[in-house]
Nucleic acid binder design. Structure first.
Lengths: 157, 157
DNA sequence: TGAATTCACTTAACATGTTAAGTATACTCC
DNA sequence: GGAGTATACTTAACATGTTAAGTGAATTCA
Protein backbone atom coordinates (compact mmCIF):
# COMPACT_ATOMS: atom_id res chain seq x y z
CA UNK A 1 0.00 0.00 0.00
CA UNK A 2 2.16 2.77 1.32
CA UNK A 3 5.51 2.59 -0.39
CA UNK A 4 8.85 4.04 0.62
CA UNK A 5 8.00 7.46 -0.66
CA UNK A 6 5.75 7.98 2.34
CA UNK A 7 8.39 7.37 4.92
CA UNK A 8 11.63 8.99 5.76
CA UNK A 9 13.92 7.68 8.41
CA UNK A 10 15.82 10.90 8.96
CA UNK A 11 15.55 12.37 12.45
CA UNK A 12 13.73 15.68 12.07
CA UNK A 13 14.34 18.77 14.21
CA UNK A 14 10.69 18.95 15.24
CA UNK A 15 7.63 16.94 16.25
CA UNK A 16 5.75 15.03 13.60
CA UNK A 17 2.76 16.45 11.81
CA UNK A 18 0.22 14.39 13.74
CA UNK A 19 1.19 16.27 16.91
CA UNK A 20 0.60 19.73 15.55
CA UNK A 21 -1.96 21.53 17.66
CA UNK A 22 -3.15 23.86 14.87
CA UNK A 23 -3.54 20.86 12.56
CA UNK A 24 -5.46 18.87 15.17
CA UNK A 25 -7.80 21.80 15.75
CA UNK A 26 -8.23 22.36 12.02
CA UNK A 27 -8.98 18.72 11.40
CA UNK A 28 -11.54 18.60 14.19
CA UNK A 29 -13.17 21.80 12.99
CA UNK A 30 -13.35 20.53 9.43
CA UNK A 31 -15.00 17.29 10.53
CA UNK A 32 -17.66 19.42 12.24
CA UNK A 33 -18.06 21.99 9.47
CA UNK A 34 -18.59 19.27 6.88
CA UNK A 35 -21.93 18.71 8.59
CA UNK A 36 -22.93 22.37 8.42
CA UNK A 37 -21.73 23.57 5.05
CA UNK A 38 -24.17 21.71 2.77
CA UNK A 39 -27.07 22.91 4.94
CA UNK A 40 -25.89 26.53 4.83
CA UNK A 41 -25.35 26.23 1.13
CA UNK A 42 -28.97 25.21 0.66
CA UNK A 43 -29.89 28.46 2.37
CA UNK A 44 -27.51 30.39 0.11
CA UNK A 45 -25.16 31.39 2.92
CA UNK A 46 -21.46 30.96 3.55
CA UNK A 47 -20.20 29.89 6.92
CA UNK A 48 -19.08 33.46 7.71
CA UNK A 49 -22.29 35.14 6.55
CA UNK A 50 -24.20 32.81 8.85
CA UNK A 51 -21.88 33.65 11.74
CA UNK A 52 -22.72 37.34 11.29
CA UNK A 53 -26.47 36.74 11.13
CA UNK A 54 -26.33 34.45 14.10
CA UNK A 55 -24.19 36.89 16.04
CA UNK A 56 -26.71 39.65 15.41
CA UNK A 57 -29.73 37.51 16.24
CA UNK A 58 -28.74 37.38 19.91
CA UNK A 59 -28.65 41.16 20.26
CA UNK A 60 -30.49 44.28 19.22
CA UNK A 61 -27.42 45.72 17.55
CA UNK A 62 -23.64 45.84 17.66
CA UNK A 63 -20.88 48.12 16.51
CA UNK A 64 -18.83 46.72 13.66
CA UNK A 65 -15.84 46.06 15.88
CA UNK A 66 -17.96 44.34 18.51
CA UNK A 67 -19.50 42.18 15.81
CA UNK A 68 -16.08 41.32 14.39
CA UNK A 69 -14.84 40.13 17.77
CA UNK A 70 -17.98 38.13 18.45
CA UNK A 71 -17.87 36.41 15.06
CA UNK A 72 -14.10 35.88 15.00
CA UNK A 73 -13.78 37.85 11.77
CA UNK A 74 -11.13 40.37 10.86
CA UNK A 75 -12.40 43.85 10.14
CA UNK A 76 -11.72 43.78 6.39
CA UNK A 77 -13.61 40.50 6.00
CA UNK A 78 -16.52 41.81 8.00
CA UNK A 79 -16.64 45.00 5.93
CA UNK A 80 -17.14 42.93 2.78
CA UNK A 81 -19.63 40.56 4.38
CA UNK A 82 -21.70 43.46 5.67
CA UNK A 83 -21.70 45.07 2.24
CA UNK A 84 -23.06 41.81 0.83
CA UNK A 85 -25.67 41.36 3.57
CA UNK A 86 -26.78 44.97 3.17
CA UNK A 87 -27.45 44.54 -0.54
CA UNK A 88 -29.52 41.48 0.36
CA UNK A 89 -31.35 43.62 2.94
CA UNK A 90 -30.60 41.17 5.75
CA UNK A 91 -28.80 43.76 7.88
CA UNK A 92 -28.95 47.53 8.26
CA UNK A 93 -26.63 50.13 9.73
CA UNK A 94 -27.57 53.00 11.98
CA UNK A 95 -25.21 55.93 12.42
CA UNK A 96 -24.25 56.77 15.97
CA UNK A 97 -25.10 60.47 16.34
CA UNK A 98 -22.54 61.09 19.06
CA UNK A 99 -19.69 59.49 17.09
CA UNK A 100 -19.84 59.59 13.32
CA UNK A 101 -17.06 57.00 13.03
CA UNK A 102 -19.24 54.27 14.46
CA UNK A 103 -22.35 52.59 13.24
CA UNK A 104 -24.65 50.04 14.81
CA UNK A 105 -25.40 46.97 12.74
CA UNK A 106 -28.63 45.05 13.26
CA UNK A 107 -30.81 42.51 11.51
CA UNK A 108 -33.68 43.67 9.33
CA UNK A 109 -37.00 41.88 9.46
CA UNK A 110 -35.86 39.79 6.47
CA UNK A 111 -32.61 39.04 8.26
CA UNK A 112 -34.44 37.80 11.32
CA UNK A 113 -36.72 35.71 9.14
CA UNK A 114 -33.67 34.14 7.53
CA UNK A 115 -32.20 33.41 10.94
CA UNK A 116 -35.40 31.73 12.03
CA UNK A 117 -35.43 29.62 8.88
CA UNK A 118 -31.82 28.45 9.24
CA UNK A 119 -31.66 28.00 13.02
CA UNK A 120 -33.62 24.73 13.19
CA UNK A 121 -31.47 23.17 10.46
CA UNK A 122 -28.37 24.30 12.31
CA UNK A 123 -29.67 22.79 15.53
CA UNK A 124 -30.29 19.54 13.67
CA UNK A 125 -26.59 19.48 12.73
CA UNK A 126 -25.64 20.01 16.36
CA UNK A 127 -27.94 17.18 17.35
CA UNK A 128 -26.18 14.88 14.86
CA UNK A 129 -22.83 15.81 16.32
CA UNK A 130 -24.03 15.24 19.86
CA UNK A 131 -25.37 11.88 18.85
CA UNK A 132 -22.12 10.87 17.19
CA UNK A 133 -19.75 12.11 19.89
CA UNK A 134 -21.91 12.20 23.00
CA UNK A 135 -22.97 15.16 25.10
CA UNK A 136 -20.37 14.45 27.77
CA UNK A 137 -17.52 14.27 25.32
CA UNK A 138 -18.69 17.49 23.76
CA UNK A 139 -18.98 19.30 27.08
CA UNK A 140 -15.51 18.15 28.07
CA UNK A 141 -14.15 19.35 24.76
CA UNK A 142 -15.75 22.78 25.18
CA UNK A 143 -14.21 23.04 28.62
CA UNK A 144 -10.74 21.98 27.44
CA UNK A 145 -10.88 24.43 24.56
CA UNK A 146 -11.94 27.21 26.90
CA UNK A 147 -9.08 26.42 29.27
CA UNK A 148 -6.59 26.43 26.44
CA UNK A 149 -7.91 29.72 25.14
CA UNK A 150 -7.69 31.29 28.59
CA UNK A 151 -4.20 29.92 29.17
CA UNK A 152 -2.89 31.25 25.87
CA UNK A 153 -4.64 34.62 26.01
CA UNK A 154 -3.49 35.35 29.53
CA UNK A 155 0.15 34.71 28.66
CA UNK A 156 2.17 37.16 26.66
CA UNK A 157 3.31 35.83 23.34
CA UNK B 1 -20.22 49.05 30.18
CA UNK B 2 -22.35 46.86 28.00
CA UNK B 3 -25.54 48.68 27.17
CA UNK B 4 -28.89 47.34 26.04
CA UNK B 5 -27.82 46.98 22.47
CA UNK B 6 -25.79 43.96 23.44
CA UNK B 7 -28.62 41.99 24.92
CA UNK B 8 -31.83 40.67 23.60
CA UNK B 9 -34.33 38.95 25.76
CA UNK B 10 -36.15 37.16 22.97
CA UNK B 11 -36.07 33.37 23.16
CA UNK B 12 -34.05 32.19 20.15
CA UNK B 13 -34.64 28.95 18.25
CA UNK B 14 -31.09 27.78 18.78
CA UNK B 15 -28.19 27.61 21.24
CA UNK B 16 -26.22 30.75 21.95
CA UNK B 17 -23.06 31.61 20.11
CA UNK B 18 -20.75 30.68 22.97
CA UNK B 19 -21.84 27.03 22.58
CA UNK B 20 -21.00 26.74 18.91
CA UNK B 21 -18.52 23.95 18.37
CA UNK B 22 -17.05 25.40 15.17
CA UNK B 23 -16.63 28.76 16.90
CA UNK B 24 -14.99 27.21 19.95
CA UNK B 25 -12.55 25.31 17.72
CA UNK B 26 -11.86 28.40 15.65
CA UNK B 27 -11.21 30.51 18.71
CA UNK B 28 -8.86 27.93 20.19
CA UNK B 29 -7.02 27.56 16.91
CA UNK B 30 -6.64 31.31 16.54
CA UNK B 31 -5.22 31.65 20.02
CA UNK B 32 -2.60 29.07 19.04
CA UNK B 33 -1.89 30.43 15.57
CA UNK B 34 -1.31 33.92 16.93
CA UNK B 35 1.89 32.49 18.38
CA UNK B 36 3.04 30.99 15.10
CA UNK B 37 2.13 33.57 12.51
CA UNK B 38 4.64 36.31 13.36
CA UNK B 39 7.42 33.71 13.42
CA UNK B 40 6.41 32.29 10.03
CA UNK B 41 6.11 35.79 8.67
CA UNK B 42 9.70 36.49 9.63
CA UNK B 43 10.64 33.49 7.49
CA UNK B 44 8.50 34.80 4.63
CA UNK B 45 6.01 31.93 4.80
CA UNK B 46 2.28 31.71 5.20
CA UNK B 47 0.75 29.19 7.51
CA UNK B 48 -0.27 27.00 4.58
CA UNK B 49 3.07 27.17 2.78
CA UNK B 50 4.73 26.03 5.99
CA UNK B 51 2.24 23.16 6.30
CA UNK B 52 3.28 21.94 2.86
CA UNK B 53 6.98 22.18 3.57
CA UNK B 54 6.55 20.49 6.91
CA UNK B 55 4.39 17.79 5.39
CA UNK B 56 7.06 17.05 2.81
CA UNK B 57 9.93 17.10 5.30
CA UNK B 58 8.68 13.89 6.93
CA UNK B 59 8.72 11.96 3.66
CA UNK B 60 10.75 11.45 0.53
CA UNK B 61 7.87 12.47 -1.70
CA UNK B 62 4.11 12.48 -2.00
CA UNK B 63 1.52 12.64 -4.73
CA UNK B 64 -0.38 15.91 -4.84
CA UNK B 65 -3.55 14.33 -3.49
CA UNK B 66 -1.69 12.61 -0.66
CA UNK B 67 -0.05 15.92 0.23
CA UNK B 68 -3.39 17.72 0.16
CA UNK B 69 -4.91 15.24 2.59
CA UNK B 70 -1.92 15.35 4.91
CA UNK B 71 -1.87 19.16 4.98
CA UNK B 72 -5.65 19.61 5.18
CA UNK B 73 -5.65 21.67 2.01
CA UNK B 74 -8.12 21.52 -0.85
CA UNK B 75 -6.67 20.60 -4.20
CA UNK B 76 -7.08 24.05 -5.78
CA UNK B 77 -5.32 25.73 -2.88
CA UNK B 78 -2.50 23.24 -3.00
CA UNK B 79 -2.11 23.71 -6.75
CA UNK B 80 -1.47 27.43 -6.22
CA UNK B 81 0.79 26.90 -3.22
CA UNK B 82 2.91 24.38 -5.13
CA UNK B 83 3.18 26.78 -8.06
CA UNK B 84 4.52 29.40 -5.64
CA UNK B 85 6.90 27.02 -3.88
CA UNK B 86 8.19 25.77 -7.22
CA UNK B 87 9.08 29.26 -8.40
CA UNK B 88 10.95 29.70 -5.11
CA UNK B 89 12.67 26.35 -5.80
CA UNK B 90 11.65 24.91 -2.44
CA UNK B 91 9.82 21.97 -3.99
CA UNK B 92 10.08 19.99 -7.18
CA UNK B 93 7.79 17.62 -9.05
CA UNK B 94 8.68 14.31 -10.61
CA UNK B 95 6.40 12.77 -13.21
CA UNK B 96 5.25 9.22 -12.51
CA UNK B 97 6.21 7.23 -15.61
CA UNK B 98 3.53 4.60 -15.16
CA UNK B 99 0.74 7.18 -14.75
CA UNK B 100 1.14 10.50 -16.46
CA UNK B 101 -1.71 12.02 -14.45
CA UNK B 102 0.26 11.88 -11.24
CA UNK B 103 3.38 13.58 -10.05
CA UNK B 104 5.48 13.18 -6.93
CA UNK B 105 6.24 16.35 -5.01
CA UNK B 106 9.34 16.58 -2.86
CA UNK B 107 11.54 19.16 -1.16
CA UNK B 108 14.60 20.49 -2.95
CA UNK B 109 17.81 21.00 -1.04
CA UNK B 110 16.79 24.64 -0.53
CA UNK B 111 13.40 23.49 0.70
CA UNK B 112 14.96 21.20 3.25
CA UNK B 113 17.30 23.95 4.37
CA UNK B 114 14.30 26.23 4.87
CA UNK B 115 12.57 23.54 6.88
CA UNK B 116 15.61 23.14 9.08
CA UNK B 117 15.76 26.89 9.63
CA UNK B 118 12.09 27.23 10.59
CA UNK B 119 11.66 24.02 12.60
CA UNK B 120 13.47 25.22 15.75
CA UNK B 121 11.44 28.44 15.84
CA UNK B 122 8.28 26.41 15.40
CA UNK B 123 9.29 24.10 18.23
CA UNK B 124 9.89 27.16 20.40
CA UNK B 125 6.27 28.20 19.81
CA UNK B 126 5.09 24.74 20.82
CA UNK B 127 7.21 24.97 23.95
CA UNK B 128 5.54 28.29 24.83
CA UNK B 129 2.13 26.72 24.38
CA UNK B 130 3.06 23.73 26.49
CA UNK B 131 4.32 26.02 29.18
CA UNK B 132 1.15 28.10 29.15
CA UNK B 133 -1.34 25.23 29.04
CA UNK B 134 0.61 22.31 30.46
CA UNK B 135 1.68 19.11 28.77
CA UNK B 136 -1.10 17.07 30.37
CA UNK B 137 -3.81 19.48 29.30
CA UNK B 138 -2.40 19.46 25.80
CA UNK B 139 -2.24 15.67 25.59
CA UNK B 140 -5.81 15.40 26.84
CA UNK B 141 -6.93 17.94 24.28
CA UNK B 142 -5.20 16.05 21.46
CA UNK B 143 -6.93 12.88 22.57
CA UNK B 144 -10.35 14.51 22.82
CA UNK B 145 -9.97 16.09 19.39
CA UNK B 146 -8.97 12.75 17.95
CA UNK B 147 -12.00 11.09 19.51
CA UNK B 148 -14.28 13.73 18.08
CA UNK B 149 -12.73 13.42 14.65
CA UNK B 150 -13.11 9.64 14.71
CA UNK B 151 -16.70 9.86 15.95
CA UNK B 152 -17.72 12.30 13.23
CA UNK B 153 -15.82 10.65 10.39
CA UNK B 154 -17.19 7.20 11.16
CA UNK B 155 -20.78 8.42 11.11
CA UNK B 156 -22.55 9.26 7.90
CA UNK B 157 -23.55 12.87 7.59
C1' DT C 1 -11.01 -2.18 -29.00
C1' DG C 2 -13.11 1.83 -28.47
C1' DA C 3 -16.87 4.48 -26.29
C1' DA C 4 -17.97 5.67 -21.72
C1' DT C 5 -16.45 6.42 -17.30
C1' DT C 6 -13.27 7.41 -13.71
C1' DC C 7 -9.16 9.64 -11.95
C1' DA C 8 -5.73 13.23 -10.84
C1' DC C 9 -5.15 17.11 -11.13
C1' DT C 10 -5.77 22.33 -12.87
C1' DT C 11 -8.53 26.58 -13.96
C1' DA C 12 -11.97 29.71 -13.10
C1' DA C 13 -14.77 32.59 -10.29
C1' DC C 14 -16.07 34.43 -6.26
C1' DA C 15 -15.77 34.78 -0.95
C1' DT C 16 -12.75 35.18 2.88
C1' DG C 17 -7.98 35.62 5.45
C1' DT C 18 -4.23 38.68 6.23
C1' DT C 19 -1.39 42.69 6.42
C1' DA C 20 -0.62 47.46 5.26
C1' DA C 21 -2.27 51.82 3.99
C1' DG C 22 -5.99 55.22 3.62
C1' DT C 23 -9.94 58.25 5.48
C1' DA C 24 -12.82 60.46 8.32
C1' DT C 25 -13.96 61.58 12.91
C1' DA C 26 -12.97 62.10 17.82
C1' DC C 27 -9.85 63.08 21.50
C1' DT C 28 -5.64 65.33 24.05
C1' DC C 29 -3.09 68.56 25.67
C1' DC C 30 -0.47 72.57 25.41
C1' DG D 1 -8.50 76.07 19.74
C1' DG D 2 -5.49 73.89 16.78
C1' DA D 3 -1.63 70.55 15.93
C1' DG D 4 -0.86 65.92 16.99
C1' DT D 5 -2.55 61.53 18.05
C1' DA D 6 -5.82 57.87 18.52
C1' DT D 7 -10.02 55.51 17.01
C1' DA D 8 -13.23 53.08 13.86
C1' DC D 9 -13.61 51.68 10.21
C1' DT D 10 -12.66 51.00 4.78
C1' DT D 11 -9.61 49.99 0.71
C1' DA D 12 -6.09 47.70 -1.49
C1' DA D 13 -3.37 43.78 -2.68
C1' DC D 14 -2.26 39.31 -2.49
C1' DA D 15 -2.93 34.40 -0.56
C1' DT D 16 -6.17 30.89 0.53
C1' DG D 17 -11.07 28.62 0.88
C1' DT D 18 -14.74 26.75 -1.79
C1' DT D 19 -17.41 24.98 -5.51
C1' DA D 20 -17.92 23.98 -10.35
C1' DA D 21 -16.04 23.16 -14.69
C1' DG D 22 -12.16 21.86 -17.65
C1' DT D 23 -8.27 18.71 -19.34
C1' DG D 24 -5.72 14.87 -20.32
C1' DA D 25 -4.61 10.24 -19.02
C1' DA D 26 -5.98 5.71 -17.19
C1' DT D 27 -9.61 2.20 -16.63
C1' DT D 28 -13.79 -0.38 -17.55
C1' DC D 29 -16.59 -3.12 -20.02
C1' DA D 30 -19.78 -3.96 -23.72
Amino acid sequence: MADDRQKNNARLPMRDFAHSLPMALLQARESAMRRFRPMLRRHGLTEQQWRVIRGLAEVDGLEVSELAERCMLLAPSLTRILQFLETKRYVKRTRVETDQRRSIVSLTRDGRRLFEAVAPDSEACYAQIEEAFGKDGLDQLYEQLRRMYVALESTES
